[in-house]
């Protein structure tokens, strides 16, 4: 009798294990729908894209996009606050379903994770102290003798040398460190996207300004694990409708305080 019960229990467990195995083989989309939550990797301090409030709740433009996406999928968002490497590795290890964290897409990067169509297009510009000599990037020549703070491995790695081949790159891990270097004179300029720069100028009245001219344009998309075209299809549809409906532009204006630049490109 005891053995029979044990036997049935074992069989039941085995069956459960098999269904669990089947569930694991499901696509990401099915996992999200079964779980009822969308796990989103976000950055803790990149306002106005995202920041974590003292209460532990994240807020910002990227956070609102994540909430819209969860709404559209009829699930709850679950935020996973991470760092620069974590935005990628948490996708690669499937700890999160998507990363919404000011993600610039490139072909090289897209061999490790997948990107949606862009929900934002940014332009990289130079942020300088107000007393900097010169008004435009074009006046800097080959950039000799100018120290430019950049994010390690970011878009600026190629963009700055392409425009200012003789400029010295000073690499930092976080934007906060780049800003310290700029304010303390350890760097003459800082290469960041103009949305970040606008906010930085607003936050430090009378200290900073932007130089005229662009270094590069960057397409910001949602990141997802590679190898799941079905999930990518759904996310792309979400992004397209977010852009087309005007909801994206509305959220952008709310967080950045000015109109969203056009996302589409004319070739």
């Amino acid at each position: 009798m005891v053995y029979r019960i044990l036997g049935r229990a074992c069989a039941a467990l085995l069956l459960l294990g098999m269904t669990a195995g089947l569930a694991r083989a499901d696509g990401i989309l099915q996992q999200i729908l079964s779980r009822g939550t969308l796990r989103v990797a976000v950055l803790p301090s990149l306002p106005p894209y995202s920041k974590v409030l003292p209460s532990g709740e994240p807020e910002g433009y990227d956070i609102d996009i994540a909430k819209k996406l969860a709404d559209a999928l009829k699930v709850k968002p679950e935020f996973v606050v991470t760092d620069i490497p974590g935005r990628i590795t948490s996708l690669q290890t499937r700890k999160v379903d998507v990363t919404i964290a000011d993600f610039t897409r490139t072909v090289e990067r897209s061999t490790t994770i997948a990107f949606t169509e862009p929900y934002l297009v940014t332009t990289m510009r130079l942020l300088v102290p107000v007393d900097f000599k010169g008004k435009a990037i074009a006046e800097l020549g080959d950039g000799a003798g100018i120290k430019i703070a950049i994010s390690r491995g970011g878009t600026a790695e190629q963009a700055v040398p392409a425009n200012l081949p003789k400029a010295t790159l000073v690499r930092f891990n976080t934007q906060a460190d780049e800003m310290s270097a700029l304010l303390n004179g350890q760097a003459d300029a800082m290469a960041e996207d103009d949305f970040y720069n606008s906010q930085a100028i607003k936050d430090r009245p009378g200290k900073l300004r932007q130089l005229d001219g662009l270094l590069a344009r960057a397409e910001i998309g949602i990141g997802l694990p590679s190898g799941d075209p079905d999930f990518l299809r759904v996310l792309n549809l979400f992004v397209e409708q977010l852009n087309a409906s005007g909801n994206n532009a509305k959220m952008f204006k709310q967080w950045f305080g000015f109109d969203q630049p056009t996302i589409t490109v004319h070739y």
Binding site: I84, P85, I88, T89, Q92, E108, R109, T112, I113, S151, R152, G153, G154, E157, R171, N173
Partner: peptide, 14 residues
């Protein structure tokens, strides 16, 4: 620094 730079450029942190 090399580790961070190449990881961020290529997204191949592992």
């Amino acid at each position: 620094s090399w580790m961070q730079t190449v990881g961020s450029t290529s997204f191949r942190f592992f």
